[in-house]
């Protein structure tokens, strides 16, 4: 009984790995939200006399080539990176679920068109799709967001479609129909709620990938434009100075790595709690 009462994310936090990963993610999100309260520095004020300083008491992680505090830029960079990848995945989940549910529900030629389109995009690496889209839309946060959400659209469409197709054959759907349930009732009260858990977990894991994709685009100079900091953009600036001031590239790199690993570990804990491993394969 009590196992049902507490929601799965809370139960995931009860596992040691889940607690560690969840703690890091909470820390990063909290820092991003409260950025101006946490640091006395501005992320965009240059002070060339203080450039290339290693870690010290005044600048905990050192300064970059323009003398800006690295920790400050890292915290503000979390705002960019997390919001861009988070919003992109949210858009991707909403449109992917709508598309996948519609394809599975209506079937026929509509389903075939969606399936072919999704399989086509599925066969390209996400980075390629994202690069092409950013080239079309133009660099910047909006372009990156759209590019990432389209790049992951296929994944959520496929997963939702497979879930709905499996659930459609369940007897409780026929039972609801025999009681006189409308299509809307069956779709919104039975099919989508049952399809939601695997899609949300897969969205969580995709957010980790999206942070890397956002950093990659930022590294290429296609993401947030200077002086707005993003983790990828900071690594790009630091790449020319690897030997002179290695901390400029190392700390953003470490932050990306630890954050993505934390998301994956927390996702794993969530999967274990929800007991849905076999449903994530995306097969009907």
């Amino acid at each position: 009984m009590s196992a049902v009462a507490r929601p799965a994310p809370v139960r995931a936090l009860g596992r040691p790995v889940g607690a560690l990963a969840g703690g890091w993610l909470a820390l990063v999100i909290l820092a991003a939200v409260c950025a101006p309260l946490l640091t006395p520095y501005a992320y965009d004020v240059q002070s060339l006399r203080e450039a290339y300083q290693p870690a010290s008491r005044t600048h905990w992680l050192g300064t970059d080539e323009f003398g800006r505090d690295l920790l400050t830029r890292l915290i503000y960079g979390a705002r960019t990176s997390l919001s861009v990848s988070g919003i992109a995945i949210f858009l991707s989940v909403v449109s992917g679920m709508t598309l996948g549910a519609a394809a599975a529900w209506f079937g026929g030629w509509f389903d075939r068109v969606v399936t072919v389109a999704v399989d086509l995009t599925w066969s390209f690496p996400e980075i390629l799709i994202a690069l092409i889209l950013v080239a079309i839309i133009g660099p910047g946060t909006t372009g990156t967001m759209v590019a990432i959400s389209v790049a992951y659209l296929a994944q959520f469409t496929r997963l939702t479609r497979a879930q709905i197709l499996t659930l459609k054959g369940e007897t409780f759907i026929e039972a609801a129909r025999s009681l006189g349930a409308s299509d809307g009732h069956i779709l919104f009260r039975h099919l989508l709620p049952n399809a939601l858990a695997p899609v949300l977990v897969s969205a969580m894991l995709a957010t980790g990938d999206a942070i890397i994709l956002e950093a990659t685009l930022g590294f290429f100079g296609l993401g947030a434009q200077p002086p707005v900091p993003s983790w990828g953009g900071m690594m790009s600036a630091g790449s020319a100075l690897v030997f002179k001031a290695p901390w400029i590239i190392v700390f953003p790199g470490l932050t990306v790595a630890v954050t993505v690993v934390a998301i994956n570990l927390f996702g794993d804990a969530l999967i274990a709690e929800l007991d849905i491993r076999n449903r994530l394969q995306g097969r009907p």
């Binding site: 369940e170 007897t171 409780f172 026929e174 039972a175 025999s178």
Partner: peptide
């Protein structure tokens, strides 16, 4: 009119 189904495991929504 109503129906009782064969499989009591899948005839109730697990959620």
């Amino acid at each position: 009119m109503a129906m009782v189904f064969q499989d009591p495991y899948s005839s109730l929504d697990p959620r």
